[in-house]
Amino acid sequence: MTSAAASMASGLVSGFDESRRTAPHVTIRGLSKRYPDAVIYDNFDFDIPRGKLISVFGPNGCGKSTLINMIAGLVPADAGEVLFDGRPLSRVKFGYVFQNYREALFPWLPAFDNIAYPLKLMGVPKAERKRRVERLVAHLGVKIDLALYPYYLSGGQQQLVSIMRALIVEPEILFLDEPFSALDYEMTLFMREQLQRVFMETRTTTVLVSHDLEEAVYLSDYVLLLSRHPARVVEFVPYDAPRPRTDKTLTESSFVATKAHCLKLFQQEVRRG
């Protein structure tokens, strides 16, 4: 019996999933958000597990991005509480990667200085900043000329620089808001591998908003399926294929089954609205 199968079996028996042995990383309680035309979240509760990559997936306009924006403090919540190991956001180091890398990077700084900027904000001296960026570059095996300004880099390279900028502070949690949706398919495939590599190297708790179900399942340990607004958790679908996942993973029966399961739930939600 493989260990994955064993943990599944024990999960079935005890109703207790392996990953939940450790306390959740982020606890969301009573989160509410109302826009003038809709209630997006109404008393929403959720726990984000530690050291896992979770994808947020759901119908258009259900508030996928709003969720991580509220957790990361970009959008104020009307009510509710988000705690990271019991601490508020202000005491947590986190990284955030925007969909629009072109507007999120600083075009007046070379890529290297873009990556180092969060350290500059923290008051890290210049020599130390240089050392830490170089260490991250070596760690991730990145092959980009970082002396270049962002507009000389390809879209994928720019987004990789954004991800490195988010990682440079060694965040305890990383948020990505549809990070690859502005890239062409070839670049998207490449960036999926890069993100998987980053995750395998750092094991940082990662929350990825995605509008591509294949990507969501392929990359994550769990897919958080949200309903139409007001959003609730339709299902928190585990997917525990071993990493590194490859093209072959996409044709394996466990991947196909998980994706089909998510698609079925998603379509039920879409029809319900």
Binding site: A72, F98, E103, A104, F106, Y117, P118, L121, M122
Partner: peptide, 22 residues
């Protein structure tokens, strides 16, 4: 650009830093 200001804010830049750096 709103995104650029948000990016600076999310990295922990103060209002003055956002003004001068962005």
């Amino acid at each position: 650009r709103k995104t650029r200001l948000l990016a600076a804010k999310v990295m922990g830049a103060s209002r003055t830093r956002v003004l001068f750096d962005v």
